[in-house]
Amino acid sequence: MKTINFLLAGVGGQGTILAGELLAHVGLAMGFEVKKAEVHGMSQRGGSVTSHVRWGTRVFAPVAGAGEVDFLLAFEKLEGLRNIHMLCPTAIALINQENIIPISVTSQNQVYPTDGEIQGAFAKTIQRAIFINASDTAKRLGVPQTMNVVLIGALAAVLEEYPAAEFTQSDTIWVDAITKRVPAKYAELNKTAFFAGKSLITLPQKENV
């Protein structure tokens, strides 16, 4: 199988690292070789962060290059846009409808792009860009921090449609990866977040209002 490249992009503190870990473990459970890469340090203080996850029969590099990413999971809109050059033309992007305004917009006069501009840029670049309200969904569940798992749920739904015979995923694999990696008392909550995320894709008309 061709190596599948995921890129997770967000703002420090949004939970990209845990999401990347979940994705790596799901890949392993499906029998792939997996690699994952992220940068810790300076980037955590509210700066831009990215994690790479790769699944394949044999995976060498831990990061994909620009133009090679198949799936983008953007935790924040501007961060999605910032990484648009990483995507290949057939890529699918899942973009969380959240704006986190950077200091450069508040205290200098830089301008945060409009939704129309962001959607236009994705439409021009890739096959499919799906904007979902993962943050709102997580808030409705009462725990905003589960936004990352909501996004992972949405990704699971998207992957179910992806034509790769090797994808032997099931809800059990995802749920198992999640419950093993979050504190026991939050396991049920995160499971709910996962399925809420899935239904954002499978039931778009209900949730995306």
Partner: peptide
Amino acid sequence: HISLPPAYPEPIPARPPVLC
């Protein structure tokens, strides 16, 4: 060679790390 999608035409606001 793998060609890249056209760059976003406007400057994208920077998000440097900041004091929390």
